[in-house]
């Protein structure tokens, strides 16, 4: 958001008023407070204002750097500390010696299983709900309630999802602490993410595309299927990737529904418990005495890499989608 003043257009190194600053000759002495564009100040007040603004902007910029510093620090710390731990054995072997050495393969595989299960739950439900809200929903009481529910589901703490999964899936439906119960819990947790991104993606498909399809005699549903869904696909994919990354990193919801402290083998059925990366990191850092510190750092690095890379992918996809429809960056 540039300054809308006309004065902002000139200034800089363009010709001054009159345009006679020829090369090699000294520029006429122009009274300018600082080097900002605009006309010389008539009185001291304008100069004070300008300095005050410059100081304020500098402070705001410094705050922004301060807020982003943790991102750089955390990534740098984990890369420096964790990289020495990463090896082929670390990624493909199970923990050994009471989790004080060895690798993290069962945790990686467990997280993969849980994320896949969660996506199987969240993607069909979330995409359908997002399409309904964008393409069909009229302003009825039902629509309002659904929207309210989506907003509130997004605000429910993850540990409460854990309690819910424990009482409904583990105890009431007798699934036990299992991949199944954990996947269902995580799936419901990320459902609002998929719904909101699908709805946004579908709304970004220009209305004229729908009109064109309807004018050719297509029904409403075939318009949704052949025009809206393909147009919104990158946005929907973005939402799915964000949901995947979120479910890969969550710990509290799987603590009582799926996660095993230590399990040398992979689960044999969906009703077995699994190890998972975030829970494994928690266990390594709080409950295993005298663990090799690089083991924890390595585990944290693998988890962080997984999550940040999928988020980067989502960001790139979304940027390309927005470029396609020439939309702004409003969400």
């Amino acid at each position: 958001m540039r300054s809308p003043s006309i004065a902002g257009r000139r200034g800089g190194d363009g010709p001054g008023p009159g345009g006679w600053t020829a090369r090699g000759r000294r520029a006429p002495p122009v009274l300018r407070p600082g080097h900002g564009p605009g006309r010389p100040s008539q009185d001291g007040l304008a100069a004070v204002k300008r300095w005050r603004q410059r100081a304020a902007f500098a402070v705001l910029g410094a705050l922004t750097l301060l807020v982003l510093a943790p991102l750089a620090l955390i990534v740098a710390y984990l890369v420096v500390g964790g990289l020495p731990a990463i090896s082929w054995e670390f990624l493909t072997r199970g923990p050994s010696n009471m989790m004080r050495s060895g690798g993290i393969f069962p945790a990686i595989a467990g997280t993969f299983l849980l994320v896949t299960g969660a996506s199987l739950v969240a993607v069909p439900l979330g995409v359908a709900a997002g399409l309904y809200l964008s393409e069909y929903a009229r302003p009825t009481l039902f629509t309002r309630l659904v929207r309210l529910a989506v907003v509130n589901l997004a605000g429910v703490p993850s540990v409460v999802y854990g309690l819910f999964g424990l009482s409904l899936f583990v105890v009431f439906l007798r699934m036990g602490v299992s991949v199944m119960a954990g996947s269902l819990t995580l799936g419901l947790l990320v459902l609002p993410v998929v719904i909101s991104s699908t709805e946004e993606a579908a709304r970004n498909v220009p209305q004229s595309h729908r009109h064109a399809s309807l004018a050719l005699g297509a029904t409403r549903w075939s318009t949704v299927r052949h025009v809206v869904i393909p147009g919104a696909a990158p946005g929907i994919l973005t939402g799915i990737i964000l949901a995947v990354s979120r479910s890969a990193g969550e710990t509290a919801p799987i603590m009582f529904t799926a996660a095993a402290f230590f399990l040398p083998r992979l689960p044999g059925s969906p009703f077995d418990p699994v190890m998972a990366l975030p829970y494994h990191l928690y266990v390594l850092s709080t409950e295993v005495a005298r663990a090799d510190p690089t083991l924890r750092l390595g585990t944290a690095l693998v988890l962080l890499t997984l999550v940040l890379l999928s988020n980067l992918l989502a960001i790139v996809l979304r940027a390309r989608m927005r470029a396609r429809y020439g939309g702004g960056d409003e969400t």
Partner: peptide, 14 residues
Amino acid sequence: LELLAAIPSVVYGF
């Protein structure tokens, strides 16, 4: 900012 939000809470705890 999005990446900052994406870091799992267990990593922050760590």
